[in-house]
Computed example of a mutant assay.
Amino acid sequence: MKTFRLFFLLFLALFLNADEFIDKNYSLACTIHSFDKVQQNKIKSSVYKVETLLAEVLRNELEVNIEFFDSEDEMLKSYIEYKRFNNAVFYLNYYLKNRKIIDKYTKEYFAFSSKDKFHSYVLLANNESKIKSIKDIKNKVYVNFLGDDNLHTWLDYKSLEKFKKPYKSLVKEQVNVKKASRAILNLYFNKADFTVVKKNVFDNMVKLNPALKKRLNIIDESKKIFLYGVGAFHKDTPNEVTEKFFKYTENLKIMKKLEYIYRLLDQSSLERITKEEMKDMVNFFEEYEYLKKRYNVN
């Protein structure tokens, strides 16, 4: 939840702090329905505080519209209609499932990145679990990070590829956690047998605590083809808006002011991305959908 809130606050900072570059009619939409009511209220409260503060700094010269949706389907419907906002941020799994309709109405894409534009996932196991490969996950305890649906999509893909069955039918138990760091620590303290996280998340935790490598092993690693989410500008958005957006995000002097947020997000930049660059990611998802259909998995 903290990561998502920071992710969204960065968007606000980008556009509310851009008196020179960003069109005053910029509007953004996102969903927070996956969080409980308490968490939703915390996110909204944080967002509005930042909005008010930056509006005062800018003397209300900019008009920025922010809209929260209770469902991704509702947000997509409004995105297509182009009546309430010109930009939406989709979680990766939702984009992949609905990419044909989203692509039809989109002119530009962007995504946050760290050292590289794309990242990989790793299957981590603690040494006591005796897991040496994907074939050993049977009757083991899996700890699942709720903040990124695509992590268990990759795990499911590996399971279907190896066993012709979804991973949930194989594991002894699935434990859900709200932080990727908690998933890793659960392994470290033998509260679970294995997990899937972004490789850079594990690498950063190892830098802070090298002892993790003594108890945990990387069993498998995906290709470096994944994003956290996909930002999309509607095809009817004026070119001036999109070009100013990317010009602003490339301004290193201004972006340095937001460096602390990037560090908290474990990201380093926001970049334009093309459909061609996302091709490997889309191909992976199509293969996953094919395996589900082949083995009658809903």
Rank of each mutant, 00 (worst) to 15 (best):
N190M: 03
E67K: 11
M1S: 11
F246R: 05
T274C: 14
K224S: 15
P238I: 09
A18G: 00
A55Q: 14
Q39G: 02
D19I: 07
L216I: 15
S268A: 12
I184S: 03
P166A: 04
M75H: 07
V171I: 11
L227G: 07
V47M: 14
I219M: 04
S222H: 12
E20P: 01
L123M: 15
E51A: 15
E161K: 05
K100E: 15
E287H: 14
S27H: 05
D266V: 00
L265I: 04
V297S: 01
S46L: 13
A111E: 09
F15Q: 08
N150V: 09
K138D: 08
S71N: 09
N17I: 00
N217W: 03
V171H: 01
A183N: 02
Q174I: 13
Q39W: 05
D148E: 06
S159W: 03
K256M: 01
S222C: 15
F202R: 05
L12D: 03
L185S: 10
L291D: 12
N87E: 02
E61K: 15
F163M: 04
R263W: 02
A125D: 09
M255V: 03
K135N: 01
Y121T: 12
E72A: 08
C30N: 08
S169F: 07
V230E: 10
K253M: 09
A88V: 01
Y142I: 05
E271P: 04
F15K: 03
F4P: 00
N93I: 08
K162S: 06
K235N: 13
V89M: 13
I273Q: 12
V175M: 07
Y288P: 08
V38R: 06
E243R: 11
I225Y: 09
Q174N: 09
E287M: 15
R272K: 15
Y142P: 02
F226P: 07
V197A: 05
V57F: 13
D149P: 02
